[in-house]
């Protein structure tokens, strides 16, 4: 897997740079009504390490998010997980349209 070290910067145009605030406590994954495979924590980790390719491979998973905002409301680091997921959806839509 190729890591894109500029990915967190690229995401600033979609959802700001709050992903780097996340310290992976897992509150978002514990409260998310999806109870699905560490969502959204896993996706935020991918943003932090620049695993854009991995996000694009699993992109459809992003649309399971209800954008209910519970994760954002309870995040102890104010990392805004809900908006990061929305930003990833926007990135995927624009990437697919460009290609």
């Amino acid at each position: 897997m190729i890591l894109d070290t500029d990915f967190a910067d690229e995401m600033k145009q979609y959802s700001g740079d709050t992903a780097l605030e996340c310290f992976n406590c897992g509150t978002c994954a514990a409260l998310c009504p999806l109870f699905h495979d560490n969502f959204p924590r896993r996706m935020i980790r991918y943003v932090q390490v620049g695993a854009k390719e991995r996000i694009l491979e699993n992109a459809n998973e992003l649309w399971r998010c209800l954008h209910c905002g519970l994760c954002t409301h309870t995040c102890p680091r104010e990392a805004d997980p809900g908006e990061i997921i929305l930003g990833l959806k926007q990135m995927v839509v624009e990437t697919r349209r460009r290609s």
Binding site: P33, L34, W63, R64, L66, H67, C68, L70, H73
Partner: peptide
């Protein structure tokens, strides 16, 4: 109120089954 649970509605266009499981909760 601020801790309300989602009804599942936002997922109904991509996955009615997921939407149903959330709304049943």
């Amino acid at each position: 109120q601020v801790f309300t649970s989602c009804c599942g509605g936002p997922a109904e266009s991509v996955s009615p089954a997921l939407s149903r499981s959330i709304m049943e909760e």
